[in-house]
Design a protein around this nucleic acid. Sequence first.
DNA 1: GCCGTTTTCGGCCCGACTGTTTTCAGTCG
Length: 582
Amino acid sequence: MPDLTNSQIAAALDELGDLYELDGAIVHRVVAYRTAAKAVRESSTSVAALARAGRATQLAGVGKTLQEKIVTLLETGDTPSAQKLRAKFPAGLIEMTRAVPGLGPKRARILYDELGIDSIEALREAAATQSIRGLRGFGAKAEENILASLVAFDAGDVPGVRLLLPKALNAGDAIVDALREHPASDRVELAGSARRLADSVKDLDVIATAHEPAELSRALSELELIESTGRPTEAGVRARTHTALPVDLKIVAPDQFGNLLQHFTGSKAHNMAMRDAAVRRGLHISEYGILDDATGETLRCPREEQVYERLGYQFIPAELREGRGELEAAARGELPDLITEADLRGELHAHTTASDGRATLEEMAFAAREGGFEYLAITDHSATHGFGNEVSPDQLKVQIEKVHALNEKLDGIELLAGSEVNILPDGSPDYEDELLAQLDWVIGSVHTSFRIGEQAMTERMVAAIEHPLIDAIGHPTGRKIERRAPYPVDMEKVIEAAARTGTMLEINASPDRRDLNDVHARAAAEAGVLILVDTDAHKISDYGFRRWGIATARRAWLTRDQVANTRPWPEFAALRKRALVR
DNA sequence: GCCGTTTTCGGCCCGACTGTTTTCAGTCG
């Protein structure tokens, strides 16, 4: 049996946290489980392997006890504590807390202990028959809230659906623009995970200062893209867009704008780590200021930079604020000089009408030159793509000539004849080596047979990486954000193989992929792998995807030097594996 | 359960809101 993945171990720790919470454990113990779950989920190496080696404690938030529990989990498939607690509390209790906002573990416990309510159905019945009111802490309002929440739950209106970043930013930017134009506003900024350019976004945080705050709150509720709102006040308003995205507008005094922006940009983990460090120095951070125990004075910051300055940190770009060591690096003044969109010089992954693209070779080439690219690899799908748009070996030979001929004619951009070849289940590419050798550039990608298991997939990827004519691996984990989990693959071994062979790994910039993700891209770059930021363009406008690829690269702490296609063509050309091995 | 410029015990981020209370616990972000 293969080892549990990091997500599986994290899920087990989260479950234990939920169970202990129902059991009435002190909150810090529950938080300890959740913190550890997060560290496990974000670990770029196999936590199962770490735990077996007795080294899982090197993860922040994992101590001796959890290290042992993880080992038990690996050896027996479960933990005795989870088994015991599951027998004590039916799974319906946790489902109830997920379905009804405002019903947490403490209150769910009361319902279970006093009335035996152990499922969503039992809860509905009890609320409908008014048997909940009268319990300590519950009234008629509670029953109303439960019934209303369950109606929404039945209708599939579950809270917590996440929107892809571009869609969230569309709404967020529209709201910010509209509020900035409003006469009542002074400053308006988008905060939250959208500002951190996360993969997907659960809600929008908009923060503002205004000389007529109540009026600005009302203005938000009247925007066309807003579906419904709460009560607008001087402090702000909660609303929801027609795309079911919650929007939180917060308004404060101008001299606290920096504190508020910092606080609502988050992440939660970043803020908690920063506050924790501050408390040890006698400082207390909130969205309203920084309280100094020694003087009893609160420092209000009009600008966000001042918050970090007062605490002795370098300014931390929003993309890095995930509680992944950025505070320690900022304290030492060692934050990376992050890559920007302007640093990209080449595009190494693009399709044309020869396979499933919508634009011709000429159109893609001209648009790339217009967009400032100095080199472009045409990488249509290969012989086994199999959606009616595969490129046979003979067709590829024609395509190579066409690309080279156009390259002769075209000034200002270097065109590469390439291919995105399928990595077959045994790890081999689906063209003959002789044909691959005629190409200037080859990306290998997995498009089929996702469910062959972690070990087989890892061997398949490593075999492809070791092929001398595969220069780079495209979208290495195959995930589709919010739609499809990555296929099981040992990324540690993939990264090791890439580093050893000089194979580049791609950050595919398509906004539903962003694959490699931030954690893997960081680990790969630290291991010495050269990263590519590619758009995988299927039409001209897709070149704009580079924005999302750069977002992931920045969240991965990448500098310009760690991304291969920031280099001028002659330098890049020499870094291709086919150039290295000759 | 974790962790240490408060080192092996005694703390652990901060505030708003809600519904229930009459001073606050629970929930949420």
